[in-house]
Amino acid sequence: MNSTIERSLSKVPEVTLTFWIVKIAATTLGETGGDAVSMSMNLGYLVGTAIFAALFVAAVVAQVSARRFRPFLYWITIIASTTVGTTMADFADRSLGIGYAGGSSILFALLMASLLIWYRTLGSISVNTVSSPKAEMFYWVTIMFSQTLGTALGDWTADTAGLGYTGGALVFSALLAVVVAAYYRTGISRTILFWIAFILTRPLGAVVGDFLDKPHSMGGLDLSRFAASDVLLMFIVACILLFPQRAAERAH
């Protein structure tokens, strides 16, 4: 009986309000945590990317190897993807001199290519189909591109576009509200709306994370990156423990 139930479930969580709350907290943690390693510890973007990339690969291997959905393992992998996304985007935008607009354009193209190849290969990009190793690999590659894109897009909005961190947070919050309205009031594909929302939560987390730890002179609260990361991590753990998450039902 238990094995039959497990085969009918995917390896990712059911998409609920708790999912989105934890996702935004995780993306914010990715920003503060990534900056803590690359900036506060003075390791630089390249070294930070190498560290977090190794952690991300290890987490993905563990996630793919798991026989069923494990909440803590799943969110560890999400956090790893968002921290490597932070340092990777910063390295491309700042160290390589591509710039926020250029980096965002390249990453958007990679993200769209990932989704297209996933769809052409397996016939669906719905999270409810993420139950096989091949689907999981497409899922995590797509997520890594979306997290990296979100960092570049968030920085571009706050810095280059001149909206600042609070302005950027308001813009992405408003866009997410539009997605929510479309979910309840239109017949637009739920899968498309999911990925749009998933992508938008990353730049929202990026600007909120920067708002927390950037200096007052730059419009931030100048909080310790390590302290902010610790608080966000404890919040995520509390959400997982207090609001148990179920695996999404697998599409047939």
Results as ranks from 00 to 15, higher is better:
132 S>M: 06
201 T>K: 05
172 F>K: 01
233 L>A: 14
178 V>H: 13
139 Y>W: 02
203 P>A: 10
165 Y>Q: 02
221 L>R: 00
235 F>I: 14
153 L>F: 12
176 L>H: 04
177 A>P: 11
227 A>V: 14
167 G>P: 04
228 A>M: 09
232 L>A: 06
168 G>A: 05
164 G>N: 08
234 M>W: 05
214 K>P: 05
171 V>A: 13
175 L>Y: 07
124 S>T: 15
136 E>R: 12
125 I>K: 02
132 S>F: 02
111 L>T: 10
209 G>C: 11
191 T>L: 00
132 S>V: 08
195 W>G: 03
211 F>H: 13
231 V>F: 08
218 M>L: 14
192 I>V: 12
229 S>F: 04
132 S>C: 09
113 A>C: 01
116 L>T: 08
215 P>V: 05
215 P>H: 04
154 G>K: 09
105 S>A: 15
172 F>M: 03
203 P>C: 12
122 L>C: 11
205 G>W: 08
202 R>K: 11
206 A>V: 07
162 G>V: 06
113 A>F: 10
108 F>I: 13
177 A>T: 10
232 L>N: 03
212 L>I: 11
177 A>V: 10
131 S>E: 00
131 S>A: 13
203 P>G: 13
167 G>I: 03
191 T>D: 13
133 P>N: 09
186 T>E: 05
201 T>M: 11
226 F>P: 02
237 V>S: 03
208 V>R: 00
148 T>R: 06
170 L>V: 06
151 T>K: 03
135 A>C: 09
231 V>L: 11
145 F>S: 02
162 G>S: 05
133 P>Q: 07
210 D>M: 05
229 S>A: 15
122 L>T: 13
216 H>A: 10
152 A>Y: 07
220 G>I: 07
235 F>T: 15
120 R>W: 08
132 S>K: 11
214 K>S: 06
135 A>L: 07
145 F>W: 13
179 V>K: 00
231 V>N: 08
237 V>A: 15
160 T>L: 11
188 I>L: 14
165 Y>I: 03
119 Y>W: 12
156 W>N: 03
144 M>E: 06
215 P>W: 04
198 F>K: 03
149 L>V: 02
238 A>W: 13
204 L>M: 12
191 T>H: 01
144 M>I: 08
230 D>C: 12
193 L>S: 06
238 A>Q: 06
127 V>L: 10
188 I>E: 06
109 A>P: 05
216 H>V: 15
121 T>R: 08
224 S>E: 07
198 F>T: 02
134 K>L: 15
197 A>D: 09
129 T>S: 14
145 F>C: 14
132 S>E: 11
118 W>E: 07
208 V>L: 15
142 T>R: 00
147 Q>H: 11
121 T>S: 15
142 T>N: 11
123 G>S: 12
181 A>Y: 13
110 L>Q: 03
129 T>M: 05
124 S>L: 04
115 L>I: 06
150 G>K: 01
137 M>Y: 11
114 S>N: 11
159 D>Q: 13
201 T>V: 15
182 A>G: 03
238 A>C: 10
115 L>Y: 01
123 G>T: 11
147 Q>P: 00
177 A>C: 13
173 S>R: 02
131 S>R: 13
197 A>V: 05
154 G>C: 07
